[in-house]
Amino acid sequence: MKNKIECVLLIDDDKVTNFYNKKVLTKHEEFKEIIAVTSGENALKHLTEASKGLCLKPNLIFLDINMPAMNGWEFILEYNKLDKKFTKDIKLVMLTTSNNPDDYKRSKEIETVNDFINKPLSIDLLSNLIENHYEKKITY
């Protein structure tokens, strides 16, 4: 059961948040590799490179909404333009401070978004996430 998730991509403009999230993820033993980027552009660059096999392809992406330049929603638009074969087995989870129901509703309407969780990230939340999105798979 170790290292179920090979690679996690953290997208958040706040380095401190990235630091904290890395810490929490590291504490949880299911996550092997954690990559953190501070903007949507960087994330897209990483994904393009990964699609070419230049770097590690993430299995899970935590995306913040409120970011400068390219916010979360804008990133999703670009993300959807990527090769579907490449992105189909990547889980995209919104990780945000917002408890605005409008944001939640909006995320539900986007097919690519798999989940919507509020900060702060915690061990319990991660366990719940794995339970919801990965363990079922395993049972199959």
Binding site: D14, V16, Y20, N66, T97, S98, N100, K119, P120
Partner: peptide
Amino acid sequence: AYIASHDLKEPLITISSLIDI
């Protein structure tokens, strides 16, 4: 109000999370 509170909330969350650590 929303943005202000949202933007206020974020560092607050960071603070409390880091205190937890």
